[in-house]
């Protein structure tokens, strides 16, 4: 009796363990990113009037999270567990902003957060800094990007100085249902904001 029970017992346990471990992780995680269509473009420093550096976008609090944010009510935000950004939102937004501004400001050398430029001619430059407070959808069916941007001007002689600060709030209804619609709407809003920024910057009387 004993000799029979022992192997059977271990077999059952083994089967249970194997079945437990071999269970597929069928979590339906979905990844999203901005569409960000790239048009072929080129720019030479000799043809530009000034240099603009886009620094990495900073997102406040839990917004810089791979889970896509949804505002549940005025004081509660949910980061999605199964609908994630394919890369960190700050990187994605910086790349997107750079591309949008590069397109819009055709006589500016728009660069993305290069650490240093040793050429003395290029040591006078503008710096654009985004700080996002909202980057989410909400239960009312809107996509919301709000925050501020700052423009600095640095010269070799005078150093860095703050030129402008603009607050913005771009809230628009979703194009479509679900997270795909939310991501597309957010991208649209972000394009709108960058166009506004480009318009403001191009209107600057360059020193």
């Amino acid at each position: 009796m004993r000799t029979l029970l022992r192997p059977q017992f271990f077999a059952v346990i083994g089967v249970l363990l194997l079945s437990g471990c071999s269970q597929s992780l069928n979590a339906p995680v979905e990844y999203y990113q901005f569409e960000q269509t790239i048009k072929p473009m080129q720019r030479s420093s000799t043809d530009t009037i000034a240099q603009l550096r886009v620094t990495t976008v900073s997102l406040r609090g839990a917004l810089n999270n791979r889970g896509i944010a949804m505002k549940l009510d005025n004081n509660q935000v949910n980061a999605a567990n199964y609908h994630l950004w394919s890369e960190a939102p700050d990187q994605m937004l910086t790349a997107s902003a750079h591309q949008a501004l590069f397109t819009a400001l055709d006589n500016w050398m728009v660069v993305k957060g290069l650490p240093v430029i040793t050429d003395k001619d290029q040591q006078s430059y503008y710096e654009l800094e985004y700080e996002l407070h909202h980057f989410n959808g909400d239960n009312q069916g809107n996509a919301d990007i709000s925050g501020l941007w700052r423009l600095y001007y640095t010269t070799f002689e005078k150093g860095r100085s703050l030129k402008e600060i603009h607050y913005f709030s771009e809230v628009s209804p979703l194009i479509d249902d679900d997270y795909e619609g939310l991501v597309a709407s957010l991208e649209l809003n972000w394009q709108t904001i960058n166009k506004q920024v480009a318009a403001t910057i191009s209107a600057l009387s360059h020193e």
């Binding site: 889970g67 896509i68 949804m70 549940l72 949910n78 999605a80 567990n81 199964y82 609908h83 959808g137 239960n139 009312q140 069916g141 809107n142 209804p173 979703l174 194009i175 479509d176 249902d177 679900d178 997270y179 619609g181 939310l182």
Partner: peptide, 10 residues
């Protein structure tokens, strides 16, 4: 984990 809220059009 709890399922995500679904964004809906207005």
């Amino acid at each position: 984990l709890p399922s995500d809220p679904t964004p809906r059009k207005q």
